[in-house]
Simulated scan of single mutants.
Amino acid sequence: MFTGIVQAVARVASITDRPGLRSFTLQFPPGFCAGLEVGASVACDGVCLTVTALGPEDRADFDVMQQSLSLTTLAGLTQGSLLNVERAARDGAEIGGHPLSGHIDFMATVVAIRRPENNVCVRIQVPAPWMRYIFAKGYIAINGASLTVAEAERSRDGSGCFEVWLIPETLRMTTFGAKAEGALLNIEIERQTQVFVDTVRAAIDERLGPLLPALEKLLAAQGQSLDELAKPPAGLG
């Protein structure tokens, strides 16, 4: 498990490709690897990877399967690329963000960036059907960083957009300051929110049955959807 509090930025030192597998050697800041062991987990841009070997000068190796490469931004990394990294949480550690599994749900796209004084606002486009799990004031993990959704807008096809605000400390500790429009991001949705939304949607489907299409049509005519009915109560997600 991870907390979503990025601890450092690592650099890709080398990449080795083999059939169905890509191996990364990452260079970490001094001291990051203290006590790190082979078999330990490290979140790399939000993806939970296992240490396969430890090298000198705070370097470590990781293997990534083809499936993980196809589902995440790791396939686009090159030598010199930078990543947000976090070591696995220890028992009793303070959860400064929210609990993360390190399992990416989908990739999203940066569509706009605003830079008011001392802040950055990033607008992110989400493919269907994942927008149903994203709500204003809820948690979301972007490239391994736990962030709060500022605004959320849904489209009828299940896609949509949301915005997050980044303070100077977040920009200093992460790679977000270097992102531009069109950049792909790894997204892990908040699990409590997913369970709540799926449970409510299943209950509605079970109770309404044949009437469900009519309800969806009525809600659509009013500019709403079942996702709004399944919105978690305040304080959850």
Score class of each variant (00 low, 15 high):
residue 2 F to H: 01
residue 8 A to Q: 08
residue 34 A to C: 03
residue 19 P to S: 06
residue 179 K to I: 15
residue 149 V to F: 02
residue 84 N to H: 02
residue 128 A to F: 01
residue 202 A to Y: 03
residue 214 A to H: 07
residue 112 A to D: 15
residue 95 I to G: 03
residue 50 T to C: 07
residue 84 N to L: 07
residue 30 P to G: 03
residue 36 L to H: 07
residue 13 A to I: 01
residue 126 V to H: 03
residue 57 E to H: 11
residue 138 G to K: 10
residue 172 R to S: 11
residue 233 P to E: 04
residue 5 I to Y: 11
residue 64 V to N: 00
residue 234 A to D: 04
residue 17 D to V: 02
residue 189 I to F: 03
residue 113 I to A: 08
residue 68 S to I: 05
residue 133 Y to P: 08
residue 30 P to N: 07
residue 21 L to H: 10
residue 5 I to S: 12
residue 148 T to F: 05
residue 162 F to A: 14
residue 124 I to F: 02
residue 103 H to P: 12
residue 87 R to Q: 07
residue 159 S to E: 13
residue 200 V to E: 12
residue 169 E to S: 12
residue 101 S to R: 00
residue 62 F to L: 12
residue 172 R to W: 06
residue 236 L to K: 02
residue 146 S to D: 10
residue 42 V to L: 06
residue 207 R to P: 11
residue 100 L to N: 09
residue 174 T to N: 02
residue 16 T to S: 09
residue 114 R to D: 15
residue 89 A to Q: 06
residue 162 F to D: 13
residue 175 T to E: 14
residue 81 S to Q: 13
residue 107 M to E: 14
residue 124 I to Y: 06
residue 64 V to M: 08
residue 146 S to C: 12
residue 94 E to P: 01
residue 195 V to S: 09
residue 136 A to Q: 10
residue 6 V to N: 03
residue 79 Q to N: 14
residue 161 C to P: 01
residue 106 F to I: 06
residue 13 A to R: 11
residue 10 A to G: 10
residue 205 D to K: 15
residue 231 K to V: 09
residue 215 L to H: 00
residue 71 L to K: 07
residue 217 K to T: 11
residue 209 G to W: 10
residue 13 A to V: 03
residue 59 R to D: 12
residue 131 M to Q: 14
residue 90 R to K: 13
residue 123 R to L: 00
residue 153 E to H: 09
residue 183 A to W: 04
residue 34 A to P: 01
residue 118 N to A: 15
residue 8 A to E: 06
residue 87 R to V: 01
residue 100 L to W: 00
residue 109 T to M: 10
residue 82 L to G: 03
residue 195 V to T: 13
residue 63 D to E: 04
residue 165 W to V: 15
residue 11 R to E: 15
residue 161 C to H: 13
residue 203 A to E: 08
residue 194 Q to R: 08
residue 60 A to P: 02
residue 71 L to N: 05
residue 209 G to T: 09
residue 63 D to V: 00
residue 155 S to P: 01
residue 201 R to T: 14
residue 57 E to K: 08
residue 102 G to S: 04
residue 27 Q to E: 15
residue 148 T to I: 05
residue 144 G to H: 01
residue 128 A to Q: 07
residue 136 A to N: 12
residue 118 N to W: 07
residue 71 L to R: 08
residue 131 M to G: 09
residue 175 T to P: 14
residue 63 D to H: 05
residue 65 M to Y: 00
residue 226 L to I: 07
residue 53 A to G: 10
residue 9 V to G: 10
residue 112 A to V: 02
